[in-house]
Design a protein around this nucleic acid. Structure first.
Length: 548
DNA sequence: GCCGTTTTCGGCCCGACTGTTTTCAGTCG
């Protein structure tokens, strides 16, 4: 685990302990700092070395001192002291679904319960019943929360969540009286992993929508159902919230439930400064609703340009939207091809035709087919298929840093595709690639899908790629295949290029790969497969860092 | 504990839902 995530975990634990101690605002302050550390794309040690810790959002004098203490000594005295103030098992109780700091503390003070095991015993011994506020239903809820199977699900990889959401939306459209429907939350922002799925609909018959939602075959358990919201646990324990909102509030609700939290907090304080109030029902001046039907209207009412969901992270996007200088992020219509299409050396004519037809259907100008080394006859067969406006480029896959010398009679590939997971870390100085042919680096092992990437290893790839003019891959597989959003952002800031790879092949995969690129503030001019075919071989001009 | 084109002190989002309540507390997002 990286130092960044160690510190983030430590601060989250401090926040939980402060919750138990009944502190009001400090817990959120520590959680905010934890979020900042987690989304940092460089080692916190480097930031500390430059003396810039307290420039990080949510990090002030006290927390930066604790970071320095941790870097120096490997521990934080404040944390050690807090930990001694209450039994460690209380934290486990606190993390059970439906149980919070107040309840955990009461169990400890009033029953002497110091952990989940003792809590279970107390329930079976009937010791909770006399407590004020604990009726049979609540006790039952706690009993269920203590069952091992109900452990709150870990965050779900973006790709898995997107497929599930897609299925739910399609089913609801078919079976429920729905007007508008949209997926919100961190899934819409394209976060690497999502905690739950938020779906918003407008409908004149909410009850029938909830009935249809409740009847979906993949549902495991209905957690709660009210008049505007229903929560269902699906298959592997992914929680899906469905909300029905008024058409006039759809934009405001979509904005509100898309987040991020930090983005919304800043937006609301900006609204307050301008004499307005924003909530999930609209934008209000006094009692009067002045916006909220569409999301664009919400931003326009505040004097802001529309901010794409992928960059709503409170990283300067609101100031740029106010100034009207947000960058235009890459979109599907910018892509002109795909250079990461694997093909076997023995592909049939039919398979080749199908691949080319798919590229043509997307309006692409070229298709880059990656072949194993020494497949020159296959390369010629592919090149011969370049018809109907789709050019064929041939890439050769490298699994080590030594580029093979072309055999007799074989032509050079149009580009190299380097598998980072097999070739090993990049050399510290710029190696051969240079400008011609183009290099594309794939399978960057920056982390396990859905988990946090290792900033140090990814940083070395980014440094190398920027120097060498190579493009790094962003795919729908998240961190398991290429860069995640924050690392793409770092690549953009450094002036590098990336390749958007829809490895799943369909529209959902393309959408996810694009969303990840957009999370990195990627503009079309920095996308290898948004370049005209003629520009592919040219060395990239050193780009200006993306603004943030 | 953080933060500031109304503040260096005094705020810090706020509404839905549940269970246990005759009016609210706790949790969640």
């Amino acid at each position: 685990m990286s130092t960044n995530s160690e510190l983030a975990d430590r601060f989250r634990e401090i926040a939980d302990l402060l919750d138990l101690a009944g502190e009001r605002f400090k817990p959120e302050a520590y959680r905010r700092a934890a979020r900042t550390l987690e989304s940092l794309t460089e080692d916190v040690r480097a930031v500390s070395g430059r003396g810039e810790l307290d420039a990080l959002p949510g990090v002030g004098a006290a927390i930066s001192e604790k970071i320095r203490e941790y870097l120096r000594t490997g521990s934080i005295e404040y944390y050690e002291r807090l930990r001694l103030a209450s039994p460690p098992g209380l934290l486990e109780i606190l993390r059970l679904p439906g149980l919070g700091p107040k309840t955990a503390r009461r169990f400890w003070i009033e029953l002497g319960v110091e952990g989940p095991g003792e809590l279970a015993q107390a329930i079976e011994a009937g010791r909770l019943a006399p407590l004020k506020g604990f009726g049979p239903r609540k006790i039952d809820l706690i009993r269920k929360a203590l069952a091992p199977a109900s452990a709150p699900g870990a965050r779900t990889p973006l790709r898995t969540a997107a497929r599930l959401a897609e299925g739910i939306v399609t089913a609801l459209r078919r079976t429920a009286p729905i007007d508008q429907i949209e997926v919100a939350g961190s899934l819409r922002r394209g976060r690497e992993s999502v905690g739950d799925i938020d779906i918003l609909v407008t409908s004149t018959e909410p009850e029938r929508v909830f009935d249809a939602f409740s009847a979906l075959p993949e549902r495991r358990e209905i957690s709660l159902r009210g008049s505007t919201k229903e929560t269902i646990l699906f298959g592997d324990g992914i929680q899906v919230d469905l909300r029905v909102v008024e058409p006039a509030a759809f934009g405001a609700a979509l904005q509100y439930f898309t987040g991020s939290k930090d983005h919304n907090v800043r937006l609301r304080s900006l609204a307050r400064d301008r004499g307005l109030k924003i909530n999930e029902y609209g934008v209000f001046r006094g009692e009067e609703r002045v916006g909220g039907t569409t999301e664009a209207e919400v931003y326009a009412t505040l004097g802001l340009a529309f901010i794409p969901p992928e960059i709503r992270e409170d990283q300067g996007e609101i100031a740029l939207a106010a100034a009207g200088t947000l960058p235009g992020l890459v979109a599907a219509s910018d892509l002109r091809g795909d250079l990461h299409v694997h093909a076997s050396a023995t592909a049939t004519d039919t398979e080749m035709s199908e691949q080319i037809a798919r590229a043509r259907a997307r309006g692409w100008e070229y298709l880059g087919v990656v072949l194993p080394p020494a497949s020159s006859s296959a390369a010629e067969r592919w090149r011969a298929r370049a018809t109907d406006g789709v050019a064929i480029l041939v890439g050769e896959e490298l699994r080590s840093w030594e580029a093979p010398s072309p055999g007799p009679g074989s032509t050079r590939p149009d580009y190299w595709l380097l598998r980072a997971d097999e070739a090993g870390p990049p050399p510290s100085r710029t190696a051969a690639p240079g400008s011609d042919p183009t290099w594309l680096v794939t399978h960057l092992v920056t982390g396990v899908e859905g988990a946090q990437s290792d900033p140090a290893s990814a940083a070395s790839w980014i440094d190398w790629a920027v120097q060498a003019g190579a493009a790094l891959e962003v795919s729908d597989a998240g961190a398991a295949g290429g860069l995640d959003g924050p690392l793409a952002h770092r690549l953009m800031e450094r002036g590098g290029r990336l390749h958007v790879t829809p490895s799943g092949g369909d529209d959902v995969a393309l959408g996810l790969a694009l969303r990840t690129a957009r999370r990195g503030w990627t503009t079309p001019d920095r996308v290898l497969n948004a370049s005209a075919r003629a520009a592919l071989r040219r060395p990239p001009r050193p780009g200006r860092p993306a603004r943030r």
